[in-house]
């Protein structure tokens, strides 16, 4: 029996692990879908929503950039897909109000920074990537 085991892991925790029918995500080369028996693959994942289709329905994960690897699993016929992300979370667990507040706050901060010499502001890139994360959370939660 061909099966697919999907793991979504971050440095702090193994977010999710289980059997799935398909894994859908986007790499810098474009969208891709991993099915059981997929060939061995290594690649990157751009910030976006990673979807895992299981028998119980579809699960969404907001992945803020990462890598994936597909290879043989421990059992016969098992394919294992591992998603490694620095930051990731279940879309169902996203705190929309908090993300919205963060987005507004960061937009205001960035606007204040752009008045001066934005690129040289020590927190410019930090704020920008935090804003990107907040926006992704909002987009992912709306799914």
């Amino acid at each position: 029996m061909a099966t697919l085991t999907v793991e979504i892991v971050t440095p702090e925790t193994a977010l999710w692990r289980g059997e799935a029918n398909a894994l859908v995500a986007r790499s810098s080369d474009g969208d891709f879908t991993i099915l059981p028996q997929h060939t061995e693959t290594v690649g990157d994942i751009v910030a976006g929503v990673v979807r895992v289709q299981t028998n119980e329905g579809e699960l969404g994960f907001a992945v803020h950039g990462g890598y994936f690897q597909v290879g043989p699993g421990d059992n016969e016929g098992e394919t294992r897909a591992t998603v490694l992300a620095g930051v990731a979370e279940r879309t169902s667990e996203i705190d929309v109000a908090r993300a919205q507040a963060a987005k507004e706050r960061l937009e205001a901060e960035l606007a204040a920074m752009t008045k001066g010499d934005a690129e040289n502001h020590p927190n410019f890139y930090l704020a920008q990537s935090a804003l990107e994360r907040a926006e992704l959370r909002l987009r992912a939660a709306a799914h």
Partner: peptide, 29 residues
């Protein structure tokens, strides 16, 4: 177990360039 043929997207050199700092972070963590 590896069949010895692996697909890469994007290509390895680019991938390794981005991957190396992440691997360093992971080892330090």
């Amino acid at each position: 177990k590896l069949k010895g043929y692996t697909e890469f997207e994007p290509e390895v050199e680019q991938l390794l360039t981005y991957l190396a700092p992440r691997a360093l972070e992971s080892e330090i963590f």
